[in-house]
Amino acid sequence: MSVAEREPKIVGFLCNWCSYAGADLAGTSRTSYPTSVRVIRVPCSGRVNPQFVLRAFQLGADGVLVAGCHPGDCHYSTGNYFTRRRFLLVKRFLDYLGIDQRRFRLRWISASEGPKFAETIREMTEELRQLGPRDAAAVEAHAE
């Protein structure tokens, strides 16, 4: 399997109330999407520590998705506003350290947006496939 065809690995941090429910909805509606994503459930997107994100990248994730309720719809009323602020900064900072910002996504996915979740995974998978592995050497080392 050439590098370009390798299935990228995406770690998805999904808030329990909206995005995790949205991903569940994709399931109940049998909306298929690539097997690239693995989900970690968090109560709120505001629970996602940037250190988790970098750790995922360092352990070989090609992409990281953080998803939460749409601004204004947060189950905890304000959590996602803080998330947005924090990751506006973190996305740029990761890029500055050489982790291409296209590898990180924050998305607002409501509990009714199963298709949007599936589409996000498809899009991200395609984009990550284009970008190739983050660090080819590291990937090889990992494979050994």
Binding site: V42, P43, G46
Partner: peptide, 20 residues
């Protein structure tokens, strides 16, 4: 309510969220 926002604001890790 257990949202965990504080646990990220806390740099030292003194604030933690039980269950997550």
């Amino acid at each position: 309510h257990g949202c965990g926002a504080c646990s990220v604001a806390c740099r030292s890790g003194a604030m933690n969220l039980l269950g997550f």
